[in-house]
Amino acid sequence: MSSWALSLFQRELRLAVRVGGGALVGVLFFLAVVTVIPFGVGPDLNLLARIGPAILWIGALLATLLGLDRLFQADRDDGSLDLILMAGRPLELVVLIKCLAHWMATGLPLVAAAPVLAIFLNLEPTAIGAVTLTLAAGTPALTLIGAIGASLTVTLRRGGLLLAVLVIPLTIPVLIFGVSAADAAVNDPVPFMTPFLILCSLSLISLVVGPFASAAALRFSSD
């Protein structure tokens, strides 16, 4: 990795960790969502085990999206975004690195927290492993797709809610295949690898589409 990229990555990671508790708030939100669902559906352990992967996935989806609104906005508010745009570095790569750092700081802790929260939901060991694996493969896609929403709403003062509305329809495929793969590991209507590989391919697609769309939106936002 060239030095500017490394420098950007370090800066993003430092900021994510130092500002506002970073990763911790996301994990707390995840915990809160997972805790509140048994109060809604009842403490039936069999039911929870059946819908557990879905709960974990929806919790991770919401936690990722709610953490994304500051991804570019913080840089816009203090003028850094202007300087980033004119720094002479490929903006698509800049977006990709920012997303990577953001995922390391907020997505990875969610993946790490998932096995613990899975115990509350009475998941079997295989299911716990499968959910964690699918989250690890799928949450980068959520961050990258969410980055598109974050750059589209960068000029808006209260863009967080709109971001979620814009992005959620685009994340449906990730959710479907993530949950299906986790279910498939236990219930096997289909082999685990089929939905899991599709999930991986969705992540790879978003790796391309996310930075390009997001960079385009950022360029227009300065106008």
Partner: peptide, 8 residues
């Protein structure tokens, strides 16, 4: 992609 996943 959404159509495909929803069908699936």
């Amino acid at each position: 992609i959404i159509k495909f996943s929803v069908d699936w």
